[in-house]
Design a protein around this nucleic acid. Structure first.
Lengths: 106, 106
DNA sequence: CAATCATATAACCTTTTGGTTATATATAGA
DNA sequence: TCTATATATAACCAAAAGGTTATATGATTG
């Protein structure tokens, strides 16, 4: 079972994911958006692929990366579950929070 | 700002948190519940304390640990919010999920 | 106060993580 | 086909993470 925490545990990887939110990106584009080397980026991408948080597709000489929404949503649910269980009855405003998050406010 | 991903990123630490869900525990009790050494547990506790996910209170020769629910919830909200932001419009059934989770089903 | 029990700390080890540079491979185009 | 460009891989490095054992400290109790 893939480890979401591992995937999201690094700030560079979170920045990569945020980039992909705005549409698929080639490895080159990602590399150019950071100050670290291409092999370093490649390693982060490999980890994100391993944890199935992103997907890869080959297009000519380019590699395109995209968010794996399904997996992210699973991760989300997994985390929700875990914290729900932890906080149990003390979980006061989570439903509230999500509702606010989606439709902004009451 | 403390790094919640760091605190929650380790399975042993998540297991410790799950233990504390069932009531406050002394360090000794926690150590006994795991197969690793007391100093190893102590290190995990220190990290959780640093990130303010748990609190400590001295009681005689014991150290009692308890969940810091507020902080824990903030931590998860931060992570969940990040994922929400990633999924943005694609986040279809989150509200649904939470509602079902809370009031069972339709 | 001596012994015991719970916790703290020091020193050390191995593996993982996140990075590097140098170089190989593969595809596209002139 | 030769060249330029995109990506992959190898070899290496330093620091952090997660663990160990040995030992010190501090509180409780016989």
């Amino acid at each position: 079972m893939p480890d979401v925490y591992r995937a999201l545990g690094d700030p560079t990887r979170r920045r990569i994911l945020s980039m992909l939110k705005d549409g698929n990106k080639s490895q080159k584009e990602i590399v150019e958006a950071f100050e670290i080397s291409q092999p370093a980026i490649k390693k982060h991408l490999t980890i994100l692929l391993e944890e199935e948080i992103i997907s890869e597709s080959v297009q000519g000489k380019y590699r395109l990366y995209s968010l794996n929404s399904t997996r992210l949503q699973l991760a989300y649910n997994e985390m929700l579950h875990y914290i729900e269980d932890l906080l149990d009855r003390q979980l006061v405003s989570l439903k509230n929070y999500v509702e606010k998050g989606e439709e902004r406010d009451d």
